[in-house]
Design a protein around this nucleic acid. Structure first.
Lengths: 248, 248
DNA sequence: CGTTATGTTGACATTAATCAAGCACGGTGG
DNA sequence: CCACCGTGCTTGATTAATGTCAACATAACG
């Protein structure tokens, strides 16, 4: 619980007293009130002045960018434990919207930066988060690079499974719509639908509900995802344990 | 080696002694010997233990990842002023090879981290670099997302032009091969070649040499790149300038 | 020079986008 | 409770774009 209390003084830099929990980044958010967002609701918009950092307490969100021709590109999905807005530079780089009902905690950006600057352990964690976000962005680029629809979706399922709280179940939750998946993988909803159907027909997966799939043949799925970036995660299982969960 | 803390005043006047002053990131590298790499030569490999951080003094490099099916994905091109290895986590995330003749300066990673931890201004700069790398990775994802070959190449030329030191010239240098471009844009060399030819036939560009193009109709090129992420790049030239000088 | 990398062009095959129709589920109101 | 409707999803037919295979051209290099 909140054993230690941070007394926040004047907004001037270096004004507050000791009393720093700061065991980790999450503790900064722990005392902030929870805000709720309904599916479809926006947390902030691309180009907005970045006033706050958010921590996802529950639910799933999508981060997206709109192109001038109206197309929508989803650059990531965010889940409990992820931070929103760490990669900002004055303005948010993307719009964030709730996919499922979401609970967030908000922290003022300036205070966040002050706290981080003050505590080297927080810095370490923030760097680590940024690096994770970086690799996630790069992994998406790899995923989008000239791969078949089948390979993309196989990859996507494996990715979503990794995000499940580290459990080994073969059920993959998909709170997002087919359109979200399509805009994330750079294809159309029709192709997403057809490919999922095909995987189901081949017995690789089953589709008990619309918003979830069950992996029946994990090894087949892995081989379909072939040329996967998963080999980058294998050598460092310890790196992941340091964080609550994977980033966007 | 223990770094000595130097007052900012001294550092900014440029009148520092032998002790590493660390006014900005580049100054860490300034006293390191220059290492040369011939085209095609590797600086380090994906998965290597990350022992050093590098600063590019001259030339162009490509950062790439190899997929298990043998395909090659170029995740970025690096030029003078860029850092190599900042986004590492114990091991390098990608292989880096020289495209043109390259000059680098090397700095031990441990000492680099010590220095950064010691100086908050260096931290700021490092965060800024990471964020830039982040947005670049995300921009690549946007670029790869379901865009026509024409749009991808138009974007690529604009991107490469931005990197040129003086951006008013319409000549775009392309030190890399067509295969490099193809592996960066997620298409085949044939399509790259055909599309470039098409742009030349339409009078949008001219191809005086194999490794450079001249933009004849800038506005047409921009509109072809339409739905572009260019609006996100606009602040970028300033970000580069910020790195050069640590002034806020 | 002759040999090899690199780049261009052509013919053809294949994938995924587009256009179009219909289905399934959930919510709403009668 | 059921008819209705809208949204999200699936499926089919067709087309356009790009990948593939192959031949050739040009530049680079010893």
């Amino acid at each position: 619980m909140s054993a230690q209390v941070v007394t926040m003084q004047d907004a001037r830099t270096g004004a507050w007293s000791q009393a720093l929990p700061a065991a980790d980044l999450s503790s900064l958010f722990a005392r902030q009130p929870v805000e709720k967002f309904a599916p479809g609701q926006s947390v902030f918009w691309e180009g907005d002045e970045a006033m706050h950092i958010f921590e996802v307490a529950d639910g799933m969100l999508r981060a997206l960018r709109l192109l001038s021709d109206g197309r929508r590109i989803i650059v990531g999905f965010l889940q409990a434990g992820d931070l929103l807005g760490v990669s900002l530079k004055e303005r948010y780089l993307y719009t964030v919207e709730a996919v499922s009902p979401v609970e967030l905690r908000r922290f003022p950006r300036r205070r966040f930066e002050d706290e981080v600057a003050r505590h080297s352990n927080l810095q370490q964690q923030l760097f680590s988060r940024l690096r994770d976000e970086m690799t996630a962005a790069q992994d998406q680029a790899v995923l989008l690079s000239r791969r078949s629809a089948e390979a993309k979706l196989a990859n996507f399922f494996l990715m979503m499974r990794r995000n499940e709280n580290c459990k080994r179940t073969s059920v993959v939750d998909l709170p997002m719509t087919r359109l979200d998946i399509a805009d994330y993988l750079g294809m159309t909803i029709e192709t997403v639908s057809r490919t999922i159907t095909k995987l189901a027909n081949n017995g690789v997966i089953a589709i008990p509900e619309r918003r979830s799939v069950t992996v029946l043949k994990m090894e087949t799925l892995r081989s379909l995802a072939d040329g996967d970036d998963s080999e980058h995660w294998l050598p460092s299982p310890m790196a992941r344990a340091q964080h609550a969960s994977a980033s966007a």
